[in-house]
Each structure stands twice: as structure tokens, then as C-alpha cells.
């Protein structure tokens, strides 16, 4: 084989993997990278989208949103909503997964519970929002039950009061999202070898000791992975908040997604909306990098 032929062959071998990847790369480029880059570009333009010849704005729109107190309130609400949701998703998911994995529960009852517990996952965000709006409205079932039990003295406007709205909407999201953890942890529980528990029994370990020293460490990779994914997804929740409260009352449930939406479709300020979207992207990107590093480390 001549030297030229050898180098040609080498080149072909080097290119081949990229050719195989090219359809996927093309799709990712068109459907993900291009919109992202476009939005980043909009955030540096004046009157983006609305004018055919937008001028360069530099960091003006970023300065504007960072100077807006509603943006910082939205960021705080987003963090509260996300952290509370993830913690409770994990806790409830773990409790229910342990319950469904337990031999002490009758198999028929376990199957019924399995269906019941997974129900919230089957509803779309719109349905969940409507259900909770009906349940938590001032004349709704929740107030009626709590008043009959003597827990509250008068009707609470759960979604309409600044004191309760953020907690109420977080509660609805917790209800909607725990099945992801439950299903993932249940799968993890079923994969833990029985020998570990048998050995623990021989050593005289108590139930809580088995939970702390066997179950949780065995589930830790799943817990961390799902928590990170849940954190990223919950941070971007929009329909549930939009339909239940619209970001109100006043700005008490304004989160980054509703803040961005209002900038884009209520104020038609697509440049600032893009800047806000880029901030969300950066936060999500940070978490994603963390997630990837964690996965690599494993």
C-alpha cells in the first residue's frame, strides 16, 4: 500500500464515526442548539423579533432584569418551589416505595396502592392545576373538611392570599411529582440483594438500622440522579403555576418561567424575555454539568 493510500484510508477511518453521528448531530443542532443560540442572540438585541433590523444592545437587557425586584422575587420563589418540591418528592417517594416493596402488606392491597400512588403521574399539568384549583378554592372541599375538623376557623383563600399561595402551589406540585421518585426507588429497592438484609438479621440489626446502613446507601446513586433531574425539571415548571395563580396574587408566586412568559407575551419585550431565558438556561446548565460530572464519577 502506498503512503498516499494509507493516509486516505486513515482519513476515511477517522471520518466514519462522525458520518454515523451526523444525522443525530444535525437534529440536535437544528432543534436544540439553533434555538438556544438564537435566543442568546436576541438577548443582546434591542426590539428582538419585533423589528427586522434590531440594533445591538450589549448587556442592557441583563442589567434591566437584574435591576428589577420582581426578577429577584421570582428567583427566590423558584428556589423555594424547587427545593421544597424535590425534598418532598424524595421523602414521599421513598415512603411509598418502601411500602410497596414491603412483604408485610397484602399483595392485593399492594397492587391497588401501586395504581393509586401512581395516579398523579398520569394527569397532565393542566388537569392537576384544575383539580387543585377546585379543591383549594375558598368554597372548596379542603376548606370545608378543615373547618369541620376545627383546624381553621374561616375560609382560607389558598391560591388568592399572598400568605398561602406559594405554599399551596408548591403543595400541588409535590402531589403531582412524587411518583417519579417512587417508581425509580421501587425499582432500586427490588435490585438490592436479599443477602444484605439476611446478614443484617443474623447480626440482629433493627429495621431503622437496615434502612440507614443498607437501603439508603444502596439507593444513593438513584436518589442523587433523580434529585438532580427533578431539580432541573421543577425549576422550569410553568403550566401548573400559570393556571393556578398566574404568578399572583401580586407577585407572590411569580417564578422565573412566569416572569419570562409575561415579558415575552404580555409586555412583548422579547429581548428582556430572552435575557431572562438565558439566566434560566445558565442555572439549568450548571445543574446539568453537575449531573454529568456525578454520572462520570460513578
Amino acid at each position: 500500500m502506498t503512503r498516499q493510500k494509507r493516509s486516505h484510508h486513515k482519513l476515511k477511518r477517522a471520518i466514519a464515526p462522525y458520518l454515523y453521528l451526523s444525522p443525530a448531530l444535525l437534529i440536535i443542532g437544528l432543534l436544540m442548539l439553533l434555538p438556544m443560540v438564537t435566543v442568546i442572540g436576541y438577548s443582546f438585541q434591542n426590539s428582538a423579533v419585533l423589528r427586522r433590523d434590531p440594533s445591538f444592545a450589549g448587556l442592557k437587557h441583563y442589567q434591566a432584569i437584574f435591576a428589577d425586584p420582581v426578577f429577584w422575587a421570582s428567583l427566590w420563589h423558584t428556589l423555594y418551589f424547587t427545593c421544597m418540591s424535590v425534598v418532598f418528592h424524595m421523602t414521599i417517594g421513598m415512603v411509598f416505595a418502601l411500602m410497596l416493596n414491603s412483604d408485610r402488606i397484602n399483595p392485593t392491597l399492594r397492587n391497588i396502592l401501586r395504581v393509586l400512588y401512581i395516579l398523579p403521574w398520569l394527569f397532565t399539568a393542566v388537569i392537576i392545576a384544575v383539580i387543585w384549583r377546585l379543591l383549594l378554592e375558598p368554597n372548596g372541599v379542603v376548606n370545608s373538611v378543615l373547618m369541620q375538623m376545627g383546624i381553621i376557623g374561616s375560609k382560607v383563600e389558598w391560591f388568592s392570599s399572598t400568605a398561602t399561595a406559594l405554599h399551596a402551589v408548591t403543595f400541588a406540585n409535590i402531589w403531582a411529582g412524587y411518583p417519579l421518585f417512587m417508581v425509580s426507588l421501587l425499582a432500586g429497592l427490588q435490585g438490592i440483594p436479599k443477602d444484605f438484609y439476611e446478614a443484617a438479621d443474623i447480626d440482629g440489626a433493627k429495621a431503622y438500622q437496615k434502612l440507614i446502613f443498607i437501603t439508603i446507601p444502596q439507593l444513593m446513586p438513584i436518589i442523587i440522579s433523580i434529585s438532580l433531574l427533578d431539580f432541573i425539571w421543577t425549576m422550569q415548571v410553568f403550566p401548573l403555576i400559570w393556571i393556578t395563580t398566574g404568578g399572583g396574587p401580586i407577585y407572590s408566586t411569580e417564578v422565573l418561567s412566569t416572569y419570562t412568559y409575561k415579558l415575552a407575551f404580555s409586555s412583548y419585550n422579547l429581548s428582556q424575555a430572552s435575557a431572562s431565558a438565558v439566566v434560566i438556561l445558565l442555572i439549568s446548565l450548571g445543574l446539568t454539568l453537575f449531573y454529568i460530572r456525578y454520572q462520570k464519577a460513578r
Binding site: 375560609k155 383563600e157 391560591f159 388568592s160 393556578t244 395563580t245 398566574g246
Partner: peptide, 20 residues
């Protein structure tokens, strides 16, 4: 009627329709 801050037009009509 309570719930002003999150009440929508559809809910307004529903309350009227239901004699509330």
C-alpha cells in the same frame, strides 16, 4: 365573592350560573 386575585372570567360565569 372570595378568591378575587386568582379568579378567571370562566369562574366568574360559573359562580353566576350556580346562583352563587
Amino acid at each position: 365573592s372570595p378568591g378575587i386575585a386568582t379568579k378567571t372570567e370562566q369562574e366568574k360565569v360559573e359562580e353566576f350560573v350556580n346562583n352563587r
